[in-house]
Amino acid sequence: MDKFFSIVRGLGLKRGPQRWLGGVCGGIAAKLNVDVAYVRIGYLLFALIPGPAFVFYLAAWLILPDQRNAIILESFLERRAGRP
């Protein structure tokens, strides 16, 4: 599992500091060097198309590192593995 999280960190994509929900759109906007409003509008248009927009956003929130380089899913799995 550590290799997976290393690969995710190596992408250079982090959840952004401009947060409405989880910061996913802000992180994508920072990586693409565009205004976050464009990414949010794009996501909303994507969400209107029948498909897995919510699942995509949730997955991105779980596996993209935040500004401190912490990944929510990794932290959850480490805490769970530490319990008997």
Score class of each variant (00 low, 15 high):
F4I: 10
P65Q: 10
G82E: 04
A70E: 13
M1Y: 05
A81N: 14
V8R: 05
D66T: 07
L77H: 06
D2A: 03
G23E: 03
Y43C: 07
A70I: 10
L73W: 12
L77N: 02
I49M: 11
L64F: 15
F46A: 15
D66K: 10
R15C: 15
Q18D: 14
G23K: 13
F5M: 12
G26L: 02
A37W: 02
R40C: 02
L13A: 07
G22Y: 07
A37N: 14
V34E: 11
E74R: 08
R80M: 14
V36R: 09
A81W: 08
K3V: 05
G42D: 05
L73K: 12
A37L: 08
K3P: 03
A30L: 02
A60P: 01
R68F: 12
G10D: 14
I41W: 00
L11D: 01
W61Q: 05
Q67E: 15
I49H: 07
I71V: 05
L62F: 13
A59P: 02
R9G: 10
R40P: 00
I63H: 05
A47D: 11
P52T: 04
P17V: 12
L45K: 08
W61V: 10
Y38F: 11
G42K: 03
L44I: 00
G16S: 10
V34Y: 04
Q18S: 14
L45D: 09
D35K: 14
F56H: 07
I72D: 12
G26C: 06
K31N: 09
L44V: 02
P65R: 10
Q67D: 13
Q67R: 15
A60V: 04
L64T: 12
L13G: 09
L77V: 05
A70K: 15
A59Y: 14
L58V: 13
A29K: 00
I71L: 14
V8P: 03
L58P: 00
G22V: 02
A70C: 15
G22L: 00
I28Q: 00
A60L: 13
L32S: 07
